[in-house]
């Protein structure tokens, strides 16, 4: 794993979150949650700082990060793509849509493209089953997506003409 050096103010931010939760080991999940909200992801160096602040082992922190699918160690792309794998979407062909995204972007689920533009993830039911299969890019919902439309969705964002509100936080 390549080491990245955290900026001083990032370290400060993490320490502040830990302090907010009283530097208690029992608050680990809450700390991770909040830090991921601030930084977008939880790389090894961030976990090391958290372990130090909460006086626990980095192996324990990593254990929790890898246990919950919510936590990620990979930075999300500028445009995070989520494919719904809920029952309705699944039976209406979400799997084929997903494999088309993987083929076009040359990434696996949970990964980001090298240029950092896209990341690919699966989720369970966004409550729009009537539109199955559903794909979300950032906050924007695409319904009744066919594998043939995938190339256009990607093109739309890659060329930068997509609405700004699709950008991830």
């Amino acid at each position: 794993m390549p080491k990245i050096k955290l900026a001083e103010n990032t370290v400060q931010q993490i320490k502040e979150v830990c302090a907010e939760f009283g530097n208690k080991e029992g608050e680990l999940i809450n700390v991770l949650h909040k830090v991921q909200n601030k930084l977008g992801y939880l790389p090894a160096e961030v976990q090391e700082v958290i372990a130090r602040e909460l006086k626990t082992s980095v192996a324990k922190v990593y254990g929790v990060v890898t246990f919950y699918s919510f936590f990620t160690m990979i930075p999300k792309g500028e445009f995070p793509i989520s494919i719904c794998m809920g029952t309705a979407c699944y039976v209406r062909g979400a799997e084929q849509v997903l494999s088309e995204f993987k083929r076009q972007l040359k990434v696996e689920v949970g990964e980001s493209t090298d240029d950092g533009k896209f990341s690919l993830n699966c989720l369970r039911c966004v409550g729009a089953c009537g539109l199955a299969p559903v794909v979300m890019v950032g906050e924007k919902v695409f319904g009744r997506v066919a594998p043939t439309q995938v190339v256009n969705i990607i093109k739309e964002y890659r060329e930068g003409c997509a609405s700004e509100n699709a950008k991830s936080a």
């Binding site: 082992s57 980095v58 192996a59 324990k60 254990g63 890898t66 246990f67």
Partner: peptide
């Protein structure tokens, strides 16, 4: 972890 407090090993993944 508990006896040696070295903290190298932990259960990971799910």
């Amino acid at each position: 972890n508990e006896v040696q407090t070295v903290g190298v090993l932990s259960a990971i993944n799910r």
